[in-house]
């Protein structure tokens, strides 16, 4: 990644380079920068969702309409998306890159966030969703390949981005 690119610009750039033109989000504090960056990119239509399973429905429709779609969400929402992942995205065999903030990992200041962090990888493994854990910013070098993989095999993929990846929470 060129040193003058922020991590948010790199992520948005990889999405655009892979023809992702439809992105839905439910925010997380750690995702604020990448969501703002997507809003600055005319190549991407950003449709905020009210719930993550709704967002996945939007992505499924956009993809069937010919646009590559992705979702940006927090790991605490994984539970509410399980049925949608199994019965829509996987059953109809659709690609879906999920950029997920991995709250509740090391440096987490909010104890409640840890509860879903404990289940995050187990749930993704149970669904046989290819899962990549970004811990340092160098890990993001693989994002481009991960996106290509999702659209090659028409499967959802999860990219878990933890607090260390995002540079902590300011004071932690």
């Amino acid at each position: 990644m060129p040193p003058d690119l922020t991590i948010d610009q790199k992520i948005a750039g990889d999405l655009i380079a892979n023809d992702v033109s439809f992105v839905t989000t439910v925010p997380c504090k750690q995702l604020a920068g990448v969501i703002a960056e997507i809003d600055r990119r005319p190549e991407i239509r950003h449709v905020p969702a009210n719930k993550e399973d709704e967002g996945m429905g939007l992505c499924a429709g956009a993809w069937m309409g010919g646009q590559r779609a992705a979702i940006i969400m927090q790991n605490t929402a994984l539970g509410v998306t399980l049925n949608t992942l199994a019965t829509l995205i996987q059953f109809y065999r659709m690609p879906l890159p999920m950029l997920i903030s991995y709250r509740g990992e090391l440096r987490e200041p909010v104890a409640c966030q840890v509860e879903m962090a404990l289940h995050t990888k187990a749930l993704l493994a149970q669904l046989h969703i290819p899962t990549y854990h970004f811990h340092t910013q160098a890990d993001a070098a693989e994002l481009d390949t991960i996106l290509k993989y999702s659209f090659m095999c028409n499967k959802p993929v999860a990219v878990l981005t933890d607090a260390s990846f995002w540079g902590g929470y300011g004071d932690q």
Partner: peptide
Amino acid sequence: NFYMLGTMGLASSIGLGLALAQ
């Protein structure tokens, strides 16, 4: 016709994504 075989609730969302995309 796109028949939903599961995923109760998402017909309107799938349709909106489709309408926005094409």
